[in-house]
Design a binder for these strands. Structure first.
Lengths: 356, 356
DNA sequence: TAGCGGTGCTTAACCGGTTAAGCTATTAAT
DNA sequence: ATTAATAGCTTAACCGGTTAAGCACCGCTA
């Protein structure tokens, strides 16, 4: 049913090869009469021919697609817009560079079950290197072995929003430790001493680094951090009671500020604090991380440490494509500096616009 | 470099064909000794063989991937979580069913420029039918010709969050007209008569239907809708001054309620109203559409008409896959009923939880 | 008028799989 | 003992492209 190159060749009265040469325009190695060229292009037009990408990919050994590999699809369950902004950057870059974006969700195919081969990483490498994508952006946990395994298999990949000490791995990350320090220093500079940190899951590199930044800043300021002031919020559906309970203490003992490891968590916490009758920022200052678009529209607008998600995603994609096309071999490791976006949730230097 | 089926065959001392039969387990047509099977599986394991998806796809004529085709990548620029929830549903379904998800962002390839063929739809059909995906979910404008063109080309696709009068097209949509009525009736039932509708871009089918629902409900209640009470918000970066200006009128003439066509717009509007010194819901009631997770965390929590985005996305994906595997030919057209999620932004029947 | 070089196209192998058809050796039937 | 059937594998064509190598033809030079 679908029209192939053979059909075009037949109609134009030439061989498949000639059609291929015309369509790919390798003028250097092949000469073709204008008359023949016209006949072929006419045939292409008349038949509505378009090359089959699988066949083309099979010989050329390139697919024109990049995979995004996530730890879990649950990244899409957040609401703060981190993944939106990431995907926005990725898709814009993909359109600009003429690539497709593949969300890698495929489970091991037919043959793995036969092999009682329980190694997930090996399977994932196998699936990713099966020819459908030319490279991958990895949005994974920090200690995930996939990046290393792909590199070993000679498959180009770049870690995004993560980094590695392995000098062979490419990455585009934010300096999360610095970000943690910036957030904490901001709170300290506003006079806060009893600061709660709502940190992310331990498997998350960014979460760990932000926590280190927090501890570092506290230490530099000679401030104590009671063990229970660090509360882990491992996922979106986590239990926040431990965190909220800290604020049921008598005013004297109560923490006065919260550094949340993500905007999601910050927004959730603000909502819970308000439910407890506490006012942000008057009773409690809250600072988030990412400074996504939503921060302008929370109440109060959320002060947050900005990492340029869109730009980082775009950069990573562009970098990967240039790695593919130029066949560069020396790893690029980018670490972007975050910066503070002051809004109202820390009752800070900004003049409050509302009049109530 | 990469290990092929030929390598496995060589090592196991059999032919390529035998390897293929073993790996695909077509017991019916081929008999293979346990001993041979073991030899082959050992070879597969030892060499770390994994089939090339392009070669396999070329003969089998299936790719194991589904495309998501968006109008513009700008869908990722929203912040309310609509696209998050959609992608969450899609990716969960993809994982469950063993498919990959391809974001269709590829621009016309090499050959189109040769053909001065300006027809975008034709090009998109060509790209989508090039073998890399088995079907597509179309998140497009209502009058977009792509669905029809794909169907004509025999390529399975399903419209999502949109519908068509063409009985040959498959779709999974929400009854947006009913949704518009529900939202409007809710405001009317709370005593509002001067209601502003912030509608979406005219190219958007859902936006149009919600507006019709709004007008319908107003009409049924014998309420007038001044022309300027309908304000189009075509995109995220739109100018809201026209909408805000309506609320600068003397209290008597002022509208008392806003029905925003999306949560994004509702949240933005709440934020602008507050900036003008107006209180939601005391001075102005605001109702949104979608009822995304974020609505629980705005201030006040946003009353919104719920369309079950996750479920609809999951359903559409599942439907498409079953269409592919069962080769069903009679179109399925689903229209889900929306329902009202009452929160606080309309100052409604709900008991306000906050104590201030 | 043989020899040479260039032009314009074709042939055929190949990419890495799938699968119908065929071949051989063994077993069962007569 | 001869034939038929069957198990177990191989051969070879094919999917739809790419591309190195080859070939026929022409004009030009010597």
């Amino acid at each position: 049913m679908p029209v192939t190159m053979r059909d075009v060749a037949l109609r134009a009265g030439v061989s498949k090869a000639t059609v291929s040469y015309v369509l790919n325009g390798r003028e250097t190695s092949m000469r073709i009469t204008d008359e023949t060229r016209t006949r072929i292009l006419d045939a292409v037009r008349e038949l509505g021919y378009h090359p089959n990408a699988l066949a083309r990919g099979l010989t050329r050994k390139e697919a024109g697609a990049i995979a995004i590999v996530m730890q879990y699809p649950s990244v899409f369950s957040g609401w703060s817009g981190f993944i939106n902004e990431l995907m926005h950057g990725v898709t814009d870059a993909a359109i600009r560079l003429g690539y497709d974006v593949m969300l890698h969700t495929r489970q091991p195919t037919s043959i793995e079950p036969l092999l009682e081969n329980g190694d997930t990483t090996t399977n994932e490498v196998a699936i990713l290197t099966d020819g459908r994508v030319d490279g991958a952006l990895l949005l994974r946990d920090t200690d995930d072995p996939l990046g290393q395994a792909l590199e070993a298999a000679g498959f180009p990949s770049i870690l995004i929003f993560s980094h590695s000490n392995n000098p062979n791995l490419w990455y585009v990350d934010c300096d999360n430790r610095q970000g943690g320090e910036i957030a904490t220093q901001h709170l300290i500079s506003l006079g806060h001493t009893k600061i709660v940190h709502l940190c992310g899951p331990h498997v998350s590199g960014p979460a760990r680094d932000r926590k280190i930044g927090f501890l570092c800043a506290m230490d530099k300021a000679n401030l104590e951090v009671p063990q229970h002031y660090i509360v882990e919020i491992p996922s979106r559906l986590s239990d926040y009671t431990k965190a909220v309970d800290l604020f049921n203490a008598p005013v004297k003992d109560r923490p006065t500020a919260v550094f949340a490891w993500s905007d999601d968590v910050a927004i959730m916490m603000m909502s819970l604090l308000k439910r407890e009758g506490l006012k942000v920022p008057d009773d409690v200052a809250v600072i988030g991380f990412d400074s996504t678009a939503l921060c302008d529209h929370t109440d109060p607008p959320l002060t947050s440490v900005r990492q340029p998600i869109y730009d980082m995603a775009d950069t990573a994609f562009t970098l990967l494509v240039s790695r593919l096309t130029c066949n560069t071999s020396t790893p690029t490791q980018l670490r972007v500096s975050p910066e503070l976006n002051v809004r109202d949730s820390c009752g800070s230097t900004n003049i409050r616009k509302e009049t109530r």
